[in-house]
Computed example of a mutant assay.
Amino acid sequence: MKSSHVVIIFLWVFALPLIMLMIREYLARKKDGTISNNNIFVSAGAGFIGNFCDALGIGSFAVITPILRATKNVDDRVLPGTLNAGCAVSVAIQGTVWMSDIGIETKTLVVTLICSVIGGFLGAFVVTKLDRNKVRVVMGVAFVIVAFILLSKQLGFFPNIGGEANGFHGTKLAAFAVLMGCFAALMNAGIGMYAPAMALCALMGLNLSYAFPLAAGGCCAMMPTAGIRSIVAKAIDIKVAMWMFLGSIPGVLIAALIVKSMPLTVLTWLVIFVLLYTSASMILAAKQNKGAGDHSAATEPSAE
């Protein structure tokens, strides 16, 4: 079996259980009257736009978060879980559409994906325990990092030349896999995985063509894991996540199958400025509410 087939199977093994759990949770919340009254058109539109941009290489969280916050369509406390659950399936679709034969060593691929699963779960476990203000601070800092990565790419500082290695062994493999696991954990806070994966591949001499399958596999291991954990912990707005998921499907397919590529320089600069603004607003909101008795624990029912 080709390594690309391994990754595609891996993507859907994690994505399908999340889809089933989301549908069950959505119907249960709707039946007992505890579902939120957030706007489905805003949610679907955010999923469409964000995942359209993600398929073109900008990232989804960086685009969706400002939309949801500007429209006040989701509580900040449940934002990380909602993003991960709502965008997880689009990564599986991207991987299925674009994955070609990878050529990476099976051992490196498997060990890296396993570490991504572990990192994603541990990161989700931590983030779902945070109160609203801590979520704001963590995501605010994360978005500054994302903006820095995008800025580095725009200014040409981002590493874009990899090596010829098709895998690692021993200590180097352990270091690579652990770092990819850390990237998966940080995705819970809004840091995308593709750009850091490209940088790591370049720095460690791995062929850059392997960055996408590794990142896609890691994302689709981490995001459903984080989404499921968030549903169990009640740290998600299931209505927003469900409609983001539905909106993401045409967004990804149009970008991947019809548009395929487009000039993104101006849009990327816009995303950088929006990210910095969103980061500042989240950190400022956390600072303003610190003394206002906002101690919402992650285990409390969300505003759904």
Rank of each mutant, 00 (worst) to 15 (best):
L68F: 15
V252E: 02
M198V: 14
D237T: 01
A88V: 13
I228W: 00
C115F: 15
V91G: 07
E300L: 14
G81Q: 00
L155E: 07
P159K: 08
A202T: 08
R229S: 06
V111H: 02
K287Y: 09
V274L: 14
K129N: 10
Q94F: 09
I93T: 07
R24E: 13
V141C: 04
L151C: 12
L21G: 02
T299D: 15
Q154C: 08
Y194W: 11
F125E: 08
M242E: 02
D75C: 12
I228G: 04
F158G: 05
A297N: 10
F245S: 01
I161H: 02
T268Y: 09
F212W: 04
N37S: 07
L79V: 15
F10D: 06
F168T: 02
G163C: 05
T34Q: 12
N38F: 07
G156I: 09
T171N: 14
K153A: 03
V6E: 08
N133K: 07
C115T: 09
G167M: 07
G120K: 00
K239W: 00
T106R: 15
K30M: 11
G181Y: 01
V78D: 01
F158P: 06
I231C: 01
A255Q: 03
G120A: 09
I23Y: 11
G163R: 04
V63K: 08
S209V: 08
V117Q: 00
V135T: 14
K129L: 07
G190L: 02
M139H: 04
I49R: 05
S116W: 01
L21C: 11
G293H: 11
T128P: 04
V232A: 04
E25R: 07
A55P: 10
P263K: 04
I161Q: 11
G59R: 14
T128S: 13
L276N: 00
W243C: 06
G167T: 01
A92F: 09
A221I: 05
N133H: 08
G170R: 06
L150Y: 08
P301F: 13
G162K: 11
A199H: 05
C53T: 01
S279N: 05
G162S: 10
